[in-house]
């Protein structure tokens, strides 16, 4: 079984914020973290990931800086801002609330 794209679409930004909230990271590592966190059940298309980075940076939820790798190409790192942390906290609250309600709605029995 695979997780439906429709189900997860609205959560892309929160997923990225959650990962960056646990430490600065760069594109490829974030996509690996997503694979790992989902136990290989979900893979975020990298193109989608880069679009989300740009959107979040414009919103001010994350900011980027260039790493100082001595070997090979330089990485672009992303870090969460305090505004991003606020948004993550709000999104989490909303999710916890919605999760309960939706679960009741789609699997609850109507008592007469």
């Amino acid at each position: 079984m695979e997780i439906s794209k429709d189900l997860i679409r609205g959560h892309t930004d929160t997923i990225i914020l959650n990962i960056l909230n646990q430490g600065d990271s760069y594109g490829y590592q974030v996509s690996k973290s997503i694979r790992q966190l989902s136990d290989h059940q979900y893979e975020l298309n990298e193109a989608t990931l880069y679009t989300a980075f740009r959107r979040l940076e414009k919103l001010g939820d994350i900011e980027s800086y260039w790493g100082d790798e001595t070997q090979g190409a330089r990485r672009k790192y992303y870090r969460i801002t305090s505004q991003g942390q606020d948004h993550l906290a709000t999104a989490l609250d909303e999710w916890r609330f919605a999760k309960k309600v939706i679960s009741n709605l789609i699997s609850g029995r109507i008592e007469l």
Partner: peptide, 14 residues
């Protein structure tokens, strides 16, 4: 140009 540089590093690792 900046995006290309970002991709180079990510793609090398991939």
């Amino acid at each position: 140009t900046e995006f290309k540089e970002e991709l180079v590093a990510d793609l090398i690792e991939a």
